[in-house]
């Protein structure tokens, strides 16, 4: 495994572990999703220069656009949650449990 592969595997797995294991704030969960998008961006940007296929250069741009869309939706959900629940603690999202 080359160091670049190691870098992208470790960044993505760190972010998704962080998202799935222990979160207290919704905004920090959104930060973890942004970290995942950053790992995907590095992966695609280094892929295009390593394999020397420049036509892949539109991939990181499209990826960044949709990660911006996701971040916007996530922050809007943060605002909506702060309005309805009072704060953004993930522990408060317990109204729908079985």
């Amino acid at each position: 495994m080359t160091p670049t592969n190691l870098l992208m595997y470790s960044t993505f797995s760190l972010s998704i572990f962080g998202l799935s294991m222990h979160r207290s704030h919704l905004v920090s969960a959104l930060l973890c999703i942004e970290g995942m998008m950053l790992a995907l961006f590095i992966t695609s940007a280094t892929l295009l220069s390593t394999t020397q296929t420049t036509s892949l250069a539109a991939t990181p741009i499209i990826l960044l656009t949709f990660s911006a869309c996701e971040a916007g939706t996530g922050l809007a959900l943060l605002v909506a949650t702060a309005r309805t629940h009072g704060n953004d603690h993930l522990q408060n999202l317990n109204l729908l449990q079985c």
């Binding site: 760190l14 972010s15 962080g18 979160r23 704030h25 920090s28 930060l31 973890c32 970290g35």
Partner: peptide, 10 residues
């Protein structure tokens, strides 16, 4: 990213 993942304050 490890700092982001280890659940500190935002």
């Amino acid at each position: 990213l490890a700092v982001v993942a280890c659940n500190p304050s935002p």
